[in-house]
Simulated scan of single mutants.
Amino acid sequence: MAHRFIVEADGGSRGNPGPAGYGAVVLDAATGEALAEAAEYIGTATNNVAEYRGLIAGLEAAKAIDPDAEIAVRMDSKLVVEQMSGRWKIKHPDMRPLAARAQTLFPPGRVTYEWIPRERNKHADRLANEAMDAGKRGVPWEPGAVAPEPAAAAGAAAAAGQPKAAPVGWAAPADLGAPTTFVLLRHGETALTPQKRFSGSGGSDPELSPAGRRQADAVAAALAARGTIQAVVTSPLRRCRETAATVAARLGLEVRVEEGLRETDFGAWEGLTFAEVRERHPADLDAWLASTKAAPTGGGESFAAVARRVSGARDRLLEQYAGRTVLLVSHVTPVKTLVRLALGAPPESLFRMELSAASLSAVAYYADGNASLRLLNDTGHLR
């Protein structure tokens, strides 16, 4: 499946024409995560030239990551957006070769253009100003930490169809209709759970332990008492299917399997404790803890890759179960990822959540794209 990227680009000139520079950022459309930045001081030029140069740099950065990607370009330049969309003619001789260069980077139909107001293009604007400031000092622009401004990350999420942060302190308006609610259940314990061993989708696929089966019974009773669940969807892994089957039998519902809800593939770390991974693969573990783009040793899955998979599953389920309350039986990483995306929290927040076996969390999604976290790591039914 081709990646979907958002390219935000900008350019500026202090004098028009005057000292000019551009900035661009490539965002993962599913998560809003910044994947690459580009900026450069280009000497004396006009605003329009700088904006086109920013567009080209952003597309080139996206192509370097994945030449088969689908791109959504977002700029606050009405001129560039309308010209590249084919609605306005390109009359100025300085613009034509730049537009032609931009058009050659991806095949027709793989790039769309959207105008956004300047306040939603702060990341690229900041990079362009950094480049112009560097040029004024006579030094090249150097990238800092690749992280979007909060407004840019929210804009990326909205452009990707990702739920935006819910209004603070108030529920969504009544005229939005009933939300789609995902009740998120982490599976019951396996023999590996109390030992805190890595147990993902690439390991032994363990069954529930006796304790895990008791936990599944307890959560089934609690959900039956609430009487709100209308469908049950589970990860394909055995521990989740067993947990889901117990709950569904109590509720009189069938179980549907969703591949996107499976746990991370932890590669060579499967079955090991954290201490054992630290001893055997210290450098890889440090990289994994430092970045959600790093994958476990031996071909495992990065958390960034899991986020793309989980967000795709979320979107499919939201479309299929609109307005209903659905139990999703999954694992630590997918549940944390759904919570993180609902909150618009940064990727590193995955390391700052606790999620117990057989715990319940819940997220409500509204028709306007807002999401509201209703519950996190509830284990009251296990006492």
Rank of each mutant, 00 (worst) to 15 (best):
M132D: 14
G177T: 12
G58M: 01
P19N: 12
N47K: 02
S361I: 11
P206V: 07
M353H: 03
A224W: 06
D68W: 00
L341D: 12
R226H: 03
V255H: 09
A57M: 12
P19R: 13
S372K: 14
A357R: 07
T273R: 15
E258G: 05
V335R: 01
M132R: 15
V219M: 10
E348R: 12
E82P: 03
L98T: 00
F198K: 05
A294P: 04
T325N: 11
D10K: 09
V306S: 15
P236G: 02
A166G: 15
P143D: 05
G43M: 01
I90E: 06
A62D: 05
A69S: 05
E114N: 13
G380Q: 08
R383Q: 14
D286Y: 05
Y52I: 00
Y366Q: 08
S77Y: 04
A244N: 08
E60S: 13
V310T: 09
D265N: 15
P17Q: 00
L318S: 11
V233A: 03
K336Y: 03
L272T: 06
R4E: 13
M75P: 12
V306P: 01
K336L: 13
G21T: 06
V310P: 03
E40V: 02
P210T: 11
T112H: 01
R383L: 13
T190H: 10
G200Q: 06
T228D: 11
D28P: 03
A216T: 10
P334N: 06
A61T: 03
E130T: 12
R137V: 04
I65P: 02
G161V: 10
D205K: 08
L253H: 00
Y365D: 06
A128I: 10
Q162L: 15
D378W: 14
V339G: 03
L27S: 07
K136S: 14
I6D: 00
A222G: 07
N370K: 12
A245I: 04
V277L: 09
R120C: 06
R213Q: 15
L176Q: 11
Y321Q: 05
V277G: 11
R280M: 09
W115G: 01
A249H: 04
A221V: 00
S356M: 00
G135K: 04
H123E: 14
P194S: 08
A154L: 12
A342P: 05
S359Y: 09
D378G: 04
V277E: 10
G227F: 07
A61G: 05
V329W: 09
V26D: 00
I116A: 07
V183L: 10
A69R: 02
A371S: 14
T31G: 08
A225K: 15
L208R: 09
T325K: 09
G271S: 08
A156K: 02
G43H: 05
R309V: 02
E114L: 14
H123V: 10
A211K: 14
L223Y: 09
A287H: 01
N121M: 13
T193F: 00
L237E: 13
P108G: 06
L192I: 05
F274M: 14
V326C: 01
G86A: 09
G380Y: 02
C240T: 14
E149L: 15
A24T: 06
A305Q: 13
G227A: 10
F198G: 07
E354I: 13
T292A: 15
R226N: 04
A304P: 02
A345S: 12
